[in-house]
């Protein structure tokens, strides 16, 4: 399974590197969302700093949706997904590989967004350890859920509208926990955020496990 996961992740990242869709479309989109949130909230610096965590994670969620759609658009074009199935790759490996590639791209995006949000909203990035840990754990959860429901939606004719309906409600706990962990790290709320990190870890572990086991039947039925 791990060999297949590495192969699929490498392929997805190579495709992304060649197409530059993430760099040329998803990153500018996410930056525009951060900017628009800032404009909507106005020039009140204290208000912007207080809202930084939530705005950051809502932006990440929106960008993650684009990333998931892109990940499965690759497999729809020229029926490449059928090629994956025909090659006899382990379904769990395909799931882990696609989720890992998506997660890696999201982590890079989050690093860029965190720096821009800090500059744009005037929020010093304190508690870097908790910020980084919450990014890694939340991204694992988002990538696992996105890959699972991306495959489910990809087999339908209404994939573009179905995916957000499936994805956003399920990742609501990730949005909540990651925002709380960031708020704790940035000193906007009490506690160290460890409890929220634990929730993110449990969520990610659960969805990685579910996806690894259920991806095979999902691929065959979609």
């Amino acid at each position: 399974m791990w060999r297949d996961a590495l192969l699929v992740a490498g392929k997805d990242l190579r495709v992304e590197w060649r197409s530059r869709v993430g760099l040329n479309q998803v990153v500018p989109f996410a930056l525009a969302v951060l900017l628009l949130f800032g404009l909507a909230l106005g020039p009140d610096a204290a208000r912007l700093r207080a809202a930084t965590s939530g705005l950051f994670w809502v932006t990440v969620l929106l960008a993650a949706l684009l990333g998931v759609q892109r990940s499965f658009a690759l497999e729809s074009a020229d029926r490449a997904g059928d090629g994956l199935r025909l090659s006899g790759l382990d379904a769990g490996g395909i799931f882990v590989g696609k989720a890992a590639a998506l997660g890696f791209q999201l982590l890079v995006l989050e690093a860029v967004l965190a720096l821009v949000a800090a500059l744009l909203y005037g929020t010093p990035l304190e508690g870097v350890g908790v910020l980084a840990a919450s990014c890694v754990l939340a991204t694992a959860g988002l990538a696992a859920v996105g890959t699972f429901y991306g495959a489910l939606a990809a087999g339908t004719r209404v994939r573009e509208t179905l995916l957000p309906l499936l994805f956003f409600p399920v990742v609501a706990p990730v949005l909540l926990a990651a925002t709380k962990a960031w708020s704790a790290a940035l000193g906007r709320s009490g506690g160290g955020g460890v409890g929220w990190l634990a929730l993110l870890a449990v969520f990610a572990a659960a969805y990685v496990a579910i996806g690894t086991v259920a991806f095979g039947p999902l691929l065959e039925d979609s």
């Binding site: 190579r14 495709v15 060649r18 690759l74 490449a80 059928d82 025909l86 090659s87």
Partner: peptide, 18 residues
């Protein structure tokens, strides 16, 4: 079974960017 069969379909199963 799939590793033992080869299908040439209407689609090529390729990745356009690669």
């Amino acid at each position: 079974l799939r590793r033992a069969v080869g299908l040439l379909g209407h689609a090529g199963f390729h990745y356009e960017e690669l």
